[in-house]
Amino acid sequence: MAAADLTAEPPALTPELVAALPKVVLHDHLDGGLRPATIVELAAEAGHELPTTDPAELGAWFVEAADSGSLERYLTTFDHTIAVMQTPDALRRVARESVLDLAADGVVYAEQRYAPEQHLQQGMSLQEVVDAVQQGFDEGVAEAAEAGRTITVGTLVTAMRHADRGVEIAELALANRDAGVVGFDIAGAEAAFPPSNHLEAFTLLRRSSFPVTIHAGESSGADAIWEALQLCGALRIGHGVRIDEDIELAADGSVDGARLGVLAHWVRDRQVPLEICPSSNLQTAAAESIATHPITMLRDLGFAVTINTDNRLMSGTSMSREISLLAAEAGWTLDDVEAATLTAAFNGFAHHDVLEAIVAEQILPAFAELAG
């Protein structure tokens, strides 16, 4: 066998190569990833009025409406997706299609999050919501396998941070920990709704040895990240880009000689995974451009960064698109993407043996082959 050429340049991240990469997404909202055509069909059945019934125009409307520079305005777009996800059949369809779309994009491990409490308008119970979504995930995984794509999907049951059902939703997550649910999250507007509002839920989950990720440091500052970690016991941080408030770069803007505050040191030293969503962060003004997005600076400083989509519909995006943007505008290489993919894979909330098998059987061989 010929020795590897260690001096060879890594291959360029062309669209074809990016499409072929095995991908891991830890931060992807089920209600933010619907197909526009599906929304149109389900809205007609539900009698829900949409801004337009043309699927292409509707997809463009979601991106434009979400591109407001405000997290609160961004979140209003979910009124339309939530409205069409109120029956078991609709939930099952949306979940199945989500898995198929992720698998078609090369995703081999995905954690899908959603808030069951938002799907009760037509009389379903919380458990019935979870059952319908899980059936859809299972159908999607099986259908993807028939098409030659292997994907593993775990569920993150989410509580809405502005509501008062945290304990109830935490108990729901625990009741389904052996039925597809791998973790817990809180989501929604950060302002005025700190993670500690749900401290009782987080205490229950910690005592039950159940994994938690928390949206923090997206629109709120670094203090929200501290609270999520030190008061609520988060193992990962959703977004987390505001950690840059606790980092002082050199006078020339370089990472050489950067000074990290106590929190930034904690996050880096403990290798707390950051579920960073570049395109979404631009839309909510958490970052100004892909070229200057904190993800690259954090990568260079040794933080545990991962690449995510957040809401594929609202950002008009996919994992392939996020990777391609980082390559084209921030200079990311194949090695950078592989490192972020492995960080994500080993920090999923599925059991370690499951993640280890995905890395050994799907991720490492594919990257090695693509690297030539």
Score class of each variant (00 low, 15 high):
R96P: 10
D138K: 05
E139L: 12
E97S: 07
V130T: 05
A142K: 06
H198M: 15
D101Y: 01
M124C: 05
F202D: 01
Y109K: 08
H215T: 02
Q121F: 09
R177L: 08
A147K: 09
V107P: 06
Q135S: 13
A104D: 08
V181D: 02
I214T: 03
S196I: 12
E111C: 06
A173C: 05
E111I: 04
L100A: 07
E128Y: 04
T150V: 11
V212R: 10
L172Q: 08
R177I: 03
M124A: 11
A216F: 02
T150Y: 06
Q122T: 15
V167D: 09
D185R: 09
F137R: 00
A179L: 02
A144F: 05
M124P: 00
E111Y: 08
D138S: 12
Q122M: 13
G180N: 03
L102M: 12
N197Q: 12
P116Q: 10
Q112H: 13
Q118R: 12
A175L: 09
D178P: 01
V94Y: 00
V108Y: 03
S125D: 02
Y109V: 09
E146D: 12
E117N: 06
L205D: 10
G166N: 14
A175H: 07
V129D: 01
V133M: 04
G148A: 12
D138H: 13
L205K: 08
A110K: 06
A159Q: 08
R165Q: 10
A163H: 11
V129A: 06
T158V: 15
Q134Y: 03
A189T: 15
V129L: 08
E168C: 07
F202V: 03
T203G: 07
V94L: 04
G148W: 07
A191L: 13
G148V: 12
R149V: 09
V153D: 03
Q122A: 13
V130P: 00
A187E: 04
A145R: 14
F202T: 02
V157S: 03
L120Q: 13
L156P: 06
Q112E: 05
E128R: 08
D185A: 06
D105P: 08
D105M: 09
Q135T: 14
I186P: 05
R93W: 07
D178E: 15
H198G: 14
L205M: 11
A132Q: 01
A95E: 01
H198S: 15
Q134D: 13
H198Q: 14
A132E: 02
Q134S: 12
A159G: 14
R149E: 13
V129I: 07
V153C: 05
R207C: 06
P211C: 11
R149I: 09
V212I: 15
A132V: 04
H215A: 04
P211V: 12
E128D: 13
E171G: 08
L199P: 02
G166R: 14
A115W: 04
G217R: 02
A159V: 04
Q121M: 13
I169Y: 05
R165T: 08
A159L: 07
D164N: 11
G217S: 02
V129F: 06
G217K: 02
D105K: 06
Q135L: 14
A95W: 00
A191T: 15
T150D: 15
L199M: 10
A201W: 05
P195R: 13
E190F: 06
R207S: 09
A110E: 03
P211A: 11
N176V: 02
P194W: 09
A115G: 10
Q134A: 15
E200T: 08
L120N: 11
G217V: 01
D131R: 11
V99H: 00
V107M: 05
